[in-house]
């Protein structure tokens, strides 16, 4: 089973995603440069965090025109599991695979700290190994993670159970003081209608070893392994 880690100019969590997949999860990982035009037979695609194109213009706005994005979109539309983390989330909203957008944090500052998120939905390829309501302690590191979508879009996301992660306190309660950036309805991560494209602002790949503070994020990657199974067929829910 192989994970493709897409590398845009300015990606900087690409090495972290690669390290975690290969050396902690024990799966295959391969960097795919953004100028490539195919995914080299990958079973899972990760759009990593970072500052693609320096975050210039808008976060993710230039990266979404990279040559590799056409095969990524095709892969997603064919039902392939795609995980966007932080800048990867921003790229996925810019390219239209996920609704809404990410605004400046309400503190108007970059924030790097451990937060808690609650797993809201289990029938996605990146949460199927978690338990209902499981609370994960994983870090954020972003200046623009304040999720925004018009009310009717938010309502639709809720109705379709597309909100996959929400910010919560250590006890799993959804309180505004646990929302680090002002995201609408405490949304930390969501999925597309088909449920195969999942993205979140916090960094699960940074929280996969207790030596670096938390191993709670590993369940996100383990889910992908469980979802694909030994035959590489995607099954969730």
């Amino acid at each position: 089973m192989k994970f493709a880690v897409i590398v845009f100019p300015g990606s900087n969590c690409d090495h972290d995603a690669y390290h975690t997949v290969k050396h902690v999860l024990g799966a295959d990982a391969e960097f795919v440069w953004h100028k490539e035009t195919d995914l080299k037979g990958a079973d899972v695609v990760i759009l990593p965090g970072g500052f693609s194109y320096g975050d210039y213009l808008r976060t993710g706005a230039i990266a979404r025109f990279s040559p590799i994005m056409a095969p990524v979109v095709a892969f997603a539309e064919a039902g392939g599991p795609v995980l966007g983390v932080c800048n990867g989330f921003q790229v996925l909203t810019e390219v239209g695979l996920l609704p809404g957008g990410l605004l400046r944090n309400r503190s108007v500052k970059f924030q790097c700290e451990q937060v808690h998120v609650r797993v809201e939905e289990l029938d996605t390829p990146f949460t199927c190994a978690a338990t209902a309501g499981q609370v994960l302690r994983i870090p954020i590191a972003h200046g623009e993670g304040n999720y925004f979508a018009p009310p009717e879009v938010l309502d639709a996301l809720e109705a379709n159970r597309q909100v996959v992660f929400r910010y919560c306190n250590a006890g799993g309660e959804l309180v505004d003081t646990a929302n680090p950036n002002g995201s609408a309805r405490g949304i930390a991560g969501l999925c597309n209608a088909r449920r195969n494209v999942v993205a979140l602002m916090p960094h699960p790949e940074r929280a996969c070893e207790s030596a670096v503070g938390s191993a709670d994020g590993l369940v996100v990657l383990e889910s992908a392994v469980a979802a694909l199974g030994s035959d590489g067929m995607l099954r969730t829910g």
Binding site: Y53, G54, Y56, L57, I62, F65
Partner: peptide, 14 residues
């Protein structure tokens, strides 16, 4: 203006 330069480069590559 690094932002402007990067945007110009992206437009050229498009």
């Amino acid at each position: 203006d690094p932002q402007g330069q990067t945007i110009a480069d992206a437009l050229h590559s498009m």
